[in-house]
């Protein structure tokens, strides 16, 4: 075999493997789009076909929006994820600045605790947090959805690692220019840390937009529900699950993330390589 042929073969094998992987990842999405486009009768028919005989996507979307008031849920999702991210930044940046750049007693212990907290799964603290919110009387409000996530140890860790790379001279120059310590966080560190904040924002927004567990626990009122709960509306044990509109609703709620990804693809990849997390 000539080296050239070997190169071609190797390249072909690589692509086949990658295509297979992509297939595994994409099949559920394709199935979702396919199901969302079929009328109820076709979904339950015994023959498997991807392309619907009768195109029913608009009907299903219409049912989804009318029956479940999807706009309301999307708005809830937006309010909740934006508030969580905003508050997380408000807490994480000063904390990360102190941990990275200020010298004080116990700093290293504090930082070790932050790293340690990353190891605690949120489910482990769910019940105490639930009880706390109950005592505060804020269960079944936006506050219950937002408050438990305002302190993101992952965010603090990520920003602290990034701030470590900011030269000390820059901070000293800011001090000489008369910028206060909080001023340094917002006027100097935040602008230089935009790539890290973006990366963190991606993780935060994706996690909380898709979160099913916590809203399910703390919410009763329908008008506060977030998008993933909305999808669950179509699962109905008595009347049978209405798969067409369910899949259409699922399409709608993942659409903002997909669109955001397409627009900010480069940032997304930058952010992920920045954090070293794949």
């Amino acid at each position: 075999m000539t080296p050239r042929a070997r190169m071609l073969l190797w390249s072909a094998i690589r692509h086949i493997v990658l295509l297979a992987g992509a297939g595994v990842m994409l099949t559920p999405f394709i199935w979702m789009v396919s199901t969302a486009s079929k009328p109820q009768t076709e979904i339950f028919s015994s023959d498997l076909h991807l392309i619907p005989y009768q195109f029913a996507l608009w009907d299903n979307l219409l049912i989804a929006f009318v029956k479940a008031d999807l706009w309301r849920y999307l708005l809830n999702g937006l309010i909740v994820t934006a508030s969580i991210f905003g508050l997380q930044v408000l807490v994480a940046l000063p904390a990360a600045y102190a941990l990275a750049k200020l010298r004080f007693l116990g700093r290293d212990v504090l930082f070790a605790l932050v790293v340690f907290c990353i190891l605690i799964p949120p489910q482990a603290t769910a019940i105490p947090v639930f009880l706390l919110l109950h005592k505060l009387g804020v269960l079944d409000t936006y506050a219950a959805l937002v408050l438990p996530f305002t302190i993101s140890v992952f965010g603090i860790f990520l920003m602290r690692q990034f701030f470590k790379t900011v030269p000390d001279d820059l901070i000293d120059a800011a001090r000489m220019d008369g910028i206060s310590e909080f001023g340094i966080v917002w006027r100097v560190m935040l602008p230089t840390a935009i790539p890290a904040v973006t990366a963190f924002g991606i993780f935060s927004v994706v996690a909380h937009w898709n979160d099913y567990f916590w809203p399910l626990i703390v919410l009763n009122s329908e008008h506060l529900q977030t998008p993933p709960l909305a999808v669950a509306h179509f699962r109905n044990n008595e009347a049978g699950t209405n798969y067409g509109p369910l899949m259409a609703a699922a399409m709608v709620i993942i659409a903002p993330l997909v669109i955001a990804f397409l627009f900010a693809q480069r940032r997304f990849i930058e952010g992920i390589t920045l954090t070293g997390i794949k």
């Binding site: 001279d169 120059a173 100097v188």
Partner: peptide
């Protein structure tokens, strides 16, 4: 400063 320490943004 040696590194100039200009605000990059």
């Amino acid at each position: 400063f040696q590194s100039y320490a200009l605000y990059p943004h």
